[in-house]
């Protein structure tokens, strides 16, 4: 097998996002700020969100992490701009399901380019790396406090 299977995880686009992450840094105007840790590896992610007219107007992330967590954060920031908290909650659930192997017809529509992270499902040890940024944005903009939605995220707490 050697490393051929690795290409399912480390797709070119993922490597590019990790090497040159989008929306990396901090914001001038921030309405929500959150810091999340991945306790198994010590990775830290800081997320700043600017909400305007009930939508994400701008977003930035900072912190250290592996390729998967950095690329996932970068892709997440691309996808959530212009979305409402309710839409984001749906995206986060779709992402969480996708990386645990449950893709639906809607996945691609909801997640756009981030769908490329579906390969993570074959690497269970890396699911937490992929979901960290999505959990962060979910908490930052928390649209509803529906336990059902949160429950879906619990597989990787």
């Amino acid at each position: 097998m050697a490393l051929s299977k690795l290409e399912n995880l480390y797709r070119q686009m993922i490597l590019e996002h990790a090497a040159h992450p989008h929306h990396h840094g901090s914001l001038k105007k921030t309405s929500q700020k959150i810091e999340l840790r991945n306790p198994t590896c010590g990775d830290v992610l800081t997320l700043e969100v600017e909400l305007k007219d009930g939508k994400v107007a701008d977003i930035a992330f900072a912190g250290s992490g592996c390729t998967i967590s950095q690329a996932s954060a970068s892709m997440m920031t691309d996808e959530v701009i212009g979305k409402t908290p309710a839409q984001i909650a749906k995206m986060v659930v779709a992402f969480s399901e996708m990386v645990t192997g449950k893709e639906t017809d809607e996945t691609e529509e909801l997640l756009g380019d981030a769908t490329i992270l579906a390969g993570v499902a074959q690497f269970p040890a890396r699911i937490k790396c992929a979901t960290l940024a999505w959990k962060a944005v979910y908490q930052a903009v928390k649209a509803d406090d529906s336990k059902a939605t949160l429950g879906l995220l619990h597989h990787d707490v």
Binding site: M1, A2, L6, C66, T67, A125, R126, C129
Partner: peptide, 14 residues
Amino acid sequence: LHPHDVATALDMEG
């Protein structure tokens, strides 16, 4: 290289 990425690659090599 992040250590997680290295450990995943090593795992792929058994």
